[in-house]
Amino acid sequence: MSRLPETERPAGQAAGDGFNEVIHAPVRLRICATLDPVREVEFGTLLTVLGVSKSALSKHISVLADAGYVAQRRAVRDTRQRVWLSLTKSGRSAYRSHVAALHRILGEA
């Protein structure tokens, strides 16, 4: 099966084998892995879990959101605005397809 180079595929679209360059970046993969088993996670909690800076996390979340993989919900809690993050249906599907592709790659190694 031929794979189109990432530049020839629409942004966020995975290769036919499920491998997804948008999700594959280490921090984005960890974001998806954290969000997959839960309904949503607060931005500050994700900062703590991943141990990255606010700006780095924001940039990675923007990439995932632009691809349609992550949704953001803003809410006031304890008089402060909070951002809650969740995987969209397509994000969850793309993440799971990517993980399956990684398992296939490792199985072939």
Rank of each mutant, 00 (worst) to 15 (best):
G12I: 14
A14L: 02
A14R: 01
A14S: 15
G16Y: 00
G16A: 03
G16W: 04
D17L: 06
D17Q: 05
G18C: 11
G18N: 03
G18D: 06
G18M: 07
N20E: 08
V22Q: 02
V22S: 02
I23P: 08
I23F: 03
I23G: 03
A25F: 06
A25I: 01
P26K: 01
R30E: 06
R30K: 09
I31M: 03
C32L: 03
A33W: 05
A33M: 07
A33E: 12
T34I: 02
L35Q: 00
P37A: 06
R39S: 15
E42I: 09
E42K: 01
F43I: 04
G44P: 00
G44A: 02
T45H: 07
L46E: 02
L47Q: 14
L47S: 13
L47K: 11
L50A: 05
L50S: 05
G51Y: 08
G51M: 01
S53I: 07
K54L: 10
S55W: 14
S55Q: 14
L57G: 11
S58Y: 12
K59N: 14
H60S: 04
H60G: 01
I61W: 05
I61A: 00
I61M: 01
S62E: 08
S62Y: 06
S62L: 09
S62V: 09
V63L: 11
A65G: 05
A65P: 06
D66C: 03
D66L: 04
G68C: 06
G68H: 04
Y69M: 13
Y69H: 13
Y69K: 00
Y69P: 09
A71M: 03
A75T: 15
V76F: 14
D78L: 13
T79M: 05
T79Y: 13
R80K: 14
R80H: 15
R80M: 13
R80P: 11
R80I: 14
R80V: 15
Q81I: 14
Q81N: 13
R82D: 07
R82C: 14
V83R: 01
V83F: 07
L85H: 10
L85A: 07
S86R: 12
K89E: 15
R92E: 10
R92V: 08
R92K: 13
R92T: 10
S93N: 11
A94P: 12
Y95C: 07
Y95G: 04
Y95F: 15
R96C: 08
S97R: 07
H98N: 04
V99F: 04
V99N: 00
A100T: 09
H103D: 10
L106V: 14
L106Y: 15
G107T: 04
G107Y: 05
E108Q: 13
